[in-house]
Design a binder for these strands. Structure first.
Lengths: 208, 208
DNA sequence: AAAGATTTGACAATCATTTAACAATGTTGT
DNA sequence: ACAACATTGTTAAATGATTGTCAAATCTTT
């Protein structure tokens, strides 16, 4: 894409803008100023304008931003206009929950394969997709144009699986294991450390 | 607790320190210097020392940090030495997955109740706990010393449930719904917006 | 068509976080 | 017990992020 050095702070805010703009669009609102959006989202208007300007000017002086246009531009920035094929590695509780988490497919994230090391699960169908042995991952990824691997397995397995995924040129890993994966920089890793999140919550309780 | 103005950036790093120190402890390592830890964790030694010093000095010049002591001190800071009772609101895929996510209980987060609005689920047991109607939440929270509510329901329900939880003086909400909850500042809210996380991943793919 | 109101984009100023540097302090080996 | 070494805690400098300000552009009203 176009951008040079967009900070992680800015990128982290984009999905939230996207969500609010989607809601505004759904309620039939055509335009919004940074000031009105700032009241709604409880951030400064300055930050909103600054953020959007990282990607070029989407607004118009005296008018504000066109909700639908801005929404679709952010979608493009986030790559939501493209289809991404993914596999889920780990058909346990969390893997199953994510497989059934339908919204992903509506947004272009297509579950193509599900893998587990437990033979009892082989053949079991989740959303019409049969669970396969983890040994199949390498070939499957190579042959099915898979961009993303979702890791919902314990940490030892996650580290080993990540090594295999690197070999088959996966583009990104969505990592739910409680471990930091050590992969080349060219591979995108997004961690969802649920226990870290719960600890932060706990910190908040203890420290008012 | 003791602290004045610990920044959110510092707090976010504590669980990761806790995880690494736990691993070191498990492998029988007694002491570690900020420099060695910095190599392991791929952050600067300076940041490590700075972070720990927010909570008082846990190290010793010429020696480094005692792994077990530091681990337990961070546990205290994070409130992991206390028991927290919680309820899960929403017994769908994600709620069930979290209920079965046993590690929480090992760390003092005890699932006391599970609620859903779907009558088909009433009485169904997850980890020995029967699903109850959401109408019971208010009384249950008041009578069972519940600190934390885990919201794994769609956004409309989450907003309404949050209002009820505020009324019964819940301390914290772990929010998995794709919506920002509007609650008094005194209530801790930790959001896990999975779709936001996936969008960030998508951004990473598209923008190398 | 002109005047006044609105609102962006850009830049400057402020605030926060991270990194570097080093004196002070304790450790280790002899 | 001493000297050489290691490593923290702390302060200062550098970097990064957020907020405030205002000229320029556009819209809206009369």
């Amino acid at each position: 894409m176009d951008d040079k050095n967009i900070s992680q702070a800015v990128v982290s805010r984009l999905p939230r803008y996207y969500r609010y703009l989607g809601d505004l669009k759904d309620s039939g609102i055509e335009r919004i100023s940074s000031q009105d959006l700032s009241k709604l989202m409880k951030v400064t208007a300055s930050q909103i304008r600054q953020d959007f300007n990282n990607f070029g000017g989407f607004g118009q002086q005296g008018y504000g931003y066109n909700v639908e246009y801005l929404h679709s531009e952010i979608a493009k920035i986030l790559g939501l206009n493209e289809i991404h094929n993914l596999i889920i590695v780990g058909a346990g509780n969390l893997g199953q929950a994510l497989a059934n988490y339908m919204n992903f497919e509506r947004r272009g994230f297509i579950v193509k394969g599900i893998f587990d090391k437990n033979p009892d699960l082989y053949g079991k169908e989740l959303r019409g997709i049969a669970v396969q042995p983890v040994e199949n991952i390498e070939n499957f990824v190579k042959e099915n144009d898979i961009d993303i691997a979702v890791l919902t397995i314990p940490k030892d397995g996650a580290v080993k699986t990540a090594e295999i995924l690197v070999k088959c040129n996966i583009k990104a890993i969505w990592n739910f294991a409680h471990v930091d994966l050590n992969v080349p920089e060219s591979i995108v890793v997004e961690n969802v450390h649920l226990s870290d999140s719960l600890m932060k919550l706990s910190y908040g309780i203890v420290n008012q």
